[in-house]
Structures are given as structure tokens and as C-alpha cells.
Simulated scan of single mutants.
Amino acid sequence: MTNDPLIRLEGIKKVFFTDEVETHALSGVHFDIGRGEYVSISGPSGCGKSTLLAILGLLDTPSEGTYTLNNRQVADIGASERAQIRNKEIGFVFQAFNLIGDLSVFENVELPLTYRDGVSKAERRERAIAALERVGMAHRVKHYPAQLSGGQQQRVAVARALVGQPSILLADEPTGNLDSKNGEAVMELLDELHKAGSTICMVTHDPRYADFADRKIFMFDGRVVDEATMHRLRHEEDQRLMRPARAAAAAAATGGGAA
């Protein structure tokens, strides 16, 4: 990892407006991701993890704040160039795999390169096969997604993310649709890719998988907090949610709930 951050977020806010209701999904998020770093983002459901990842992946824009990617402010980049950056600089791995069912494994992995100018058919093939070899799926090039297990599909999805040689790999709950054995295998694959030099930012709700990262970022109610604060806030939230049930149980035990 170098001292030059690949990603810098400063005061990122995201507000959604629906039926005259404001939902503050992100509230002043600040952090950097260095080149070659492996970062996990974790927190309870609804804390803003996926919204943040969408902004990092140029799939959404912040309401306020500054996002700098590769020393360029994203706000200064037009829609057409953003699409090019997504294709060249960012590799996506999704919980649901998002493979195209009527394309073979090879065709799925090759697909991002077909949108690039100046990449020959021979080069596309060479790079697709190399990416599949990295994830241990080169022997399945002619298979279709429906012929693969969930773990194998996610490996193919990782190969598709890698084929463009992106600056950063963004993984959104990459083990969410997998059993524990396949989940561990995918996490070990990401760990190997990181050790080989890949920059990875992963969203996960599972503390076991967050531990694979070099650095853990914790989120609660749209803001970044330290680990101790997150555990305290989660405990307080759990206690708040349990109060009605405890009150009902106490009333029933003392006869207060009788008709």
C-alpha cells in the first residue's frame, strides 16, 4: 500500500426524498482507502453500507461532500466518462452474482471487455481465461451459470470483476447467498487476491468475514463510528426494541394482561 489514497471521502451525505419525507442515509462520512488496502465496511441493516458502496462504485452520487477517486473529484466527471471509469477502474462483486443465464462462463467473464475500444478478440479471450484461472474456474469455461453451484457462480463473478484489471474491487455482501463452506472459500479467494496486490472494499454484516480485512470501518445510522461505539449503540437499540416485549411479559406474569 502507498501513501497516496486511491479513494478519499470528505463529508459525504446522502438524503433521499420520498413523499415529503427526508431519509438521511449517510451523514458526514469521512475516510480514505489506500492502494493495495483491504477494507471492510460493516454495521446493522439500514446503516448506509450499500448506499455508500453505490457511491464508491459511481452508481449513485452524494447529496453533499467530496469524493476523490484516483486524484480526480468525481463531481467533475460527466455521466459518459463515469460509465467508462466503472468499466475500467472498478470491479463489482454482488451478493446475487448477477451472471447472465444464457451466456457461458467464458462469455460472462469476457463481457466487460466487449465494451472497451481497442481490445481485440484474442486479447479478450486471453484475459478472460487468465481471470478464470485466478479463481480456479478455467475448467468450466463452456458451462452456464445454472450448471454451477452458488460458490462456483460467485467465483465466476469475481473473475468477471477482475478481467478488466480494475483499480479497486467492490464486494457487496459477497457471501450473502452462500453456505458457510462456500462463503469461507470465497473469502479465502478475496484474501489471495489482496495478497497479490488487489485493492478491495467489502461490505458485510458478518463479523467473521470483516476480520479478513486489514482495516474495519463500522457504520451506524449513516455515519462512521469506532467499534466500541457501534457495539454500544447496537446494544442500546436492541434494548429499546426489547422493551415492549418485556413489558408485555411482565404484565402477563403479574396478571395485568388478563382479560
Rank of each mutant, 00 (worst) to 15 (best):
E10I: 06
G11F: 07
V15E: 13
F17G: 15
T18Q: 14
D19V: 09
E20M: 14
T23I: 11
T23A: 10
L26D: 02
S27G: 11
S27K: 15
G28E: 01
H30R: 13
G34H: 10
S40N: 02
P44K: 04
P44Y: 01
S45P: 12
G46S: 03
C47V: 00
G48Q: 00
K49S: 01
S50K: 02
T51M: 00
L52V: 09
L52P: 02
L59M: 05
T61A: 14
T61L: 06
S63K: 07
G65N: 01
L69H: 14
N71A: 15
R72N: 15
Q73H: 14
Q73A: 13
A75F: 13
I85T: 12
I85E: 05
I85R: 12
N87R: 09
G91M: 01
F94Q: 06
F94G: 04
F94P: 03
F97G: 04
D102E: 14
S104E: 03
F106K: 12
P112Q: 12
T114N: 05
T114F: 04
Y115R: 10
D117W: 03
R124H: 02
E126R: 10
R127S: 06
A128K: 07
A130V: 10
V141G: 09
K142Y: 06
H143P: 06
Q147T: 05
G150W: 03
G150E: 14
G150D: 10
G150H: 08
G150N: 10
Q152N: 06
Q152W: 06
Q152M: 05
Q153C: 10
Q154I: 01
A157T: 04
V158R: 08
R160K: 08
S167L: 08
L169G: 00
L169D: 12
E173Q: 11
N177K: 14
N177V: 06
N177W: 13
S180N: 15
S180Y: 11
K181Q: 15
G183M: 13
A185K: 05
A185R: 03
V186T: 11
L189M: 05
L189K: 03
D191A: 15
E192K: 12
E192L: 05
L193M: 08
K195L: 13
G197M: 00
C201E: 08
V203L: 06
T204C: 05
T204V: 11
T204M: 04
H205A: 09
R215A: 01
M219N: 04
D221V: 01
R223S: 04
V224A: 00
A228N: 13
M230K: 00
H231K: 13
H235Y: 11
Q239A: 08
Q239S: 13
P244R: 10
P244S: 04
R246W: 09
R246P: 10
A247M: 14
A248M: 14
A249V: 03
A250P: 05
A253F: 00
A258W: 11
